[in-house]
C-alpha cells in the first residue's frame, strides 16, 4: 500500500524532530539577532534596518524560489515517469567508465541531494554496482541541468561555475573509486538495502511501481512537488534569513577577519553548508552573499561540499549505508574539498 512512498527512508521520527529543533534554533537566533542589533546598534533606525534586511532577504528568495520550484517539479515528474531501470541501462560494464558515467548521470536524471538518496537506494536494489551508486550519490546534486543554470545565473560563466562542476566530478569519482577498490558491498550497505534481491522482509522498499498513466502520473508529480516545496522551502528561507542577516548586521571587519583566512574561511563555509542544508538548486544564491568577504576557495567549498553532505542528507545516508561508511562519505568529501579550497586560495588568483 505504500508502494509509491519513497521519501520515508528516514528510519524514525527522532531525526526529524532533531532537524526541526535545529531549524527552529537557527531561525530564532536570526530573529533575535535582527531585533537586537536593530534596537541596540549601528545608529540606524529600526525601520531602516528592517527595510535593508527585507530587501536583501527577498532578493535571494525571489531569485532562488523559481529554481527550487523547477527542482521539485522535475523530481516529481521523474518519480512518476522514470524507473531506475532507465538509469541502470545507461551504465557501462567497465568499472572506470561506469564510475565516470555515475558522475554524469544527473544530467539525464536530475535530482538534488534530498531526492538522490531514495533513487540510489532503489538503484542498489536493481543491482547497480555499489561504487557507481556512491559516485552518483555525491555527484548528482550538482551535476544536473538545473544547478548548471542556477549557478550560471548567480556567478556567470566564470571560475566558480567551472570549478564547482570540475571539483564535484573529481571528488565524486575519486570517492567512488576508493569504494570500488577498498570495500565490499556487504560491508557498505545496510542489510535492508539488499532486500529486494535477497528476498526481503516487511520493512523493505517495495519493488518500483509500474509506470503510471499520464494523467495520474502528472497529478502525483504535482502533489509531490507541492509537498517537497514546503519541505525544502524551509531550508531556503532560513538560509536566506541568515545570509541577509549576516550582510546587514555583521560588520565588514568581522566578516573579513574570518573570510580572508585561506584555511579558516574554507572550514567556516563548509560548516555553514553542512548546517544550513540548503538545496543544491539554490545554494549558489546564498553563496553570493559571501563573495565580497570570503575567499573564492571557501565559496567553492561551500558549493561542492554542501550538496554532497549536510545534516539532512547525513540522516538519509544512515538509512542506506552502515554508520562507519557514512563517516567515510562525510570525511572524504570534507577533506578533498577542504584541500582543494585551501590550495586554490593559496595558488590561484581569481
Amino acid at each position: 500500500m505504500h508502494a509509491d512512498t519513497d521519501h520515508h527512508l528516514l528510519p524514525s521520527a527522532p531525526p526529524h524532530r532533531l532537524l526541526r529543533r535545529l531549524a527552529w534554533g537557527l531561525a530564532a537566533a536570526v530573529g533575535a539577532l535582527v531585533v537586537l542589533s536593530a534596537t541596540l546598534g549601528s545608529g540606524e533606525s529600526f525601520e531602516t534596518v528592517i527595510s535593508i534586511f527585507s530587501t536583501r532577504f527577498l532578493g535571494i528568495f525571489i531569485e532562488a524560489a523559481p529554481f527550487l520550484l523547477l527542482g521539485t517539479v522535475v523530481s516529481g515528474v521523474i518519480d512518476s515517469f522514470l524507473t531506475p531501470d532507465d538509469i541502470a541501462r545507461l551504465v557501462p560494464r567497465s568499472p572506470l567508465l561506469a564510475t565516470v558515467t555515475g558522475a554524469f548521470m544527473g544530467f539525464v536524471f536530475p535530482v538534488c541531494e534530498c531526492g538522490v538518496v531514495p533513487v540510489v537506494r532503489r538503484l542498489f536494489g536493481k543491482g547497480l554496482p555499489m561504487w557507481v551508486g556512491v559516485t552518483f550519490l555525491l555527484a548528482a546534486p550538482v551535476m544536473n541541468p538545473i544547478v548548471l543554470v542556477s549557478t550560471y545565473v548567480a556567478f556567470g560563466a566564470g571560475p566558480v561555475l567551472v570549478g564547482r562542476f570540475a571539483l564535484t566530478a573529481v571528488v565524486a569519482i575519486s570517492v567512488g573509486l576508493v569504494f570500488a577498490l577498498g570495500a565490499r558491498p556487504q560491508e557498505v550497505l545496510r542489510p535492508r538495502s539488499f532486500a529486494p534481491i535477497t528476498g526481503g522482509s516487511d520493512d523493505v522498499i517495495p519493488l518500483y511501481p509500474a509506470r503510471k498513466p499520464l494523467g495520474r502520473g502528472l497529478r502525483d508529480a504535482l502533489r509531490q512537488a507541492g509537498d517537497e516545496f514546503f519541505e525544502m522551502g524551509r531550508y531556503l528561507v532560513i538560509g536566506s534569513l541568515l545570509a541577509a542577516g549576516m550582510q546587514t548586521l555583521v560588520s565588514q571587519e568581522v566578516l573579513l577577519a574570518l573570510g580572508r583566512g585561506p584555511a579558516v574561511s574554507v572550514i567556516a563555509m563548509q560548516a555553514l553548508a553542512f548546517l544550513l542544508s540548503v538545496c543544491s538548486t539554490v545554494d549558489a544564491f546564498l553563496a553570493l552573499a559571501f563573495v565580497g568577504t570570503f575567499t573564492t576557495g571557501s565559496v567553492l567549498a561551500f558549493l561542492t561540499f554542501g550538496p554532497m553532505v549536510d545534516v539532512k542528507s547525513t540522516l538519509m545516508f544512515l538509512g542506506v549505508f552502515r554508520p562507519r561508511i557514512v563517516a567515510y562519505l562525510i570525511v572524504l568529501p570534507l577533506l578533498m574539498t577542504l584541500l582543494a579550497g585551501v590550495w586554490l586560495n593559496l595558488n590561484v588568483a581569481f
Partner: peptide, 20 residues
C-alpha cells in the same frame, strides 16, 4: 491522505515558508 508523502510539517515549519 493514505498515501501522503511526508511526515506532517509542524505549524511553525509552515510559518517559516510564509516568512517571504
Amino acid at each position: 491522505t493514505h498515501h501522503h508523502h511526508h511526515d506532517h510539517l509542524s505549524w511553525p515549519a509552515l510559518a517559516v515558508v510564509a516568512v517571504p
